[in-house]
Write a protein that binds this DNA or RNA. Sequence first.
DNA 1: GTGTTTGCAAAGTGTTTGCAATTTA
DNA 2: TAAATTGCAAACACTTTGCAAACAC
Lengths: 148, 148
Amino acid sequence: MKQSPSPAPSPDLAASRLRAAGLRSTRQRKALAALLFDSAGHKKCRHVTAEALHTEAVDAGIQVSLATVYNTLHQFTIAGLLREVVVDAGPSCFDTNTSDHYHLYNENTGELTDLSARRIRITGLPRLPAGAEVSRVDVVVRMRRRST
Amino acid sequence: MKQSPSPAPSPDLAASRLRAAGLRSTRQRKALAALLFDSAGHKKCRHVTAEALHTEAVDAGIQVSLATVYNTLHQFTIAGLLREVVVDAGPSCFDTNTSDHYHLYNENTGELTDLSARRIRITGLPRLPAGAEVSRVDVVVRMRRRST
DNA sequence: GTGTTTGCAAAGTGTTTGCAATTTA
DNA sequence: TAAATTGCAAACACTTTGCAAACAC
């Protein structure tokens, strides 16, 4: 599969990204960051579980333990590089899209898609008690094949 | 508390509710249904975890196993008596309010409150592919103490 | 009676953690 | 070299399941 001179998934792009986020740039973090953020052929927005990312890394010949993948995903999330998404029970999902957006969840396939928050408008939200603020509004549109 | 002719916390109300839902009325189900739907002094809308409901039942002198509580909560959910709510990882929550509504989640306390869907309007949702339908739109407003 | 439900304990997920060895800055 | 990170395996939290005994109808 390593066929042409086309650049291997970003040489030190990952490293600088890590630095910018205040994280030490280790072999494992660089590799995972490259998979998450820089791989060509990937859509901009990825939704991965720890398990899936670990498999992907191992398949790509990257030696990293599942525990480290978990830890790394959380560190990336805290650093603001990822956002954790909860649609239902089961493995939690990490989203490379950290901008303001919502989700479309396909109940039949489990597929998760981003919905730009630009088009969607939510009105009538309640006034919060003083001293409180909205940290985020999560919206999940659940869709399925029409049954009736 | 059984003072007036006013009915004690629903004698067979729970039983008939179960029948209506097509569930056999067993001792455990009746007791759990009574706790969930009929207890005086409770708010109309309850958000319980399996663990919490089990504890509550045991404290009330009801003999029931945690496994049965889990099973019963799912049966109630399938029967449309409850709705499962996911706000984040951790134990899943069951909501006695099955009407159309959203949730306010207090990140500091973990408290979950219902938001009537009547006031809230969501516009700009995407058109779905033919043959697909929206099964539900989940909205969670996450609030916290103002930090900045 | 017959099919359903229960409870237990065991197995199953998905995730976190303690700690020695390794790596980074 | 000091501090952070890794990997393993064990622990963990939450949930489901297999199966025999108990129960509802």
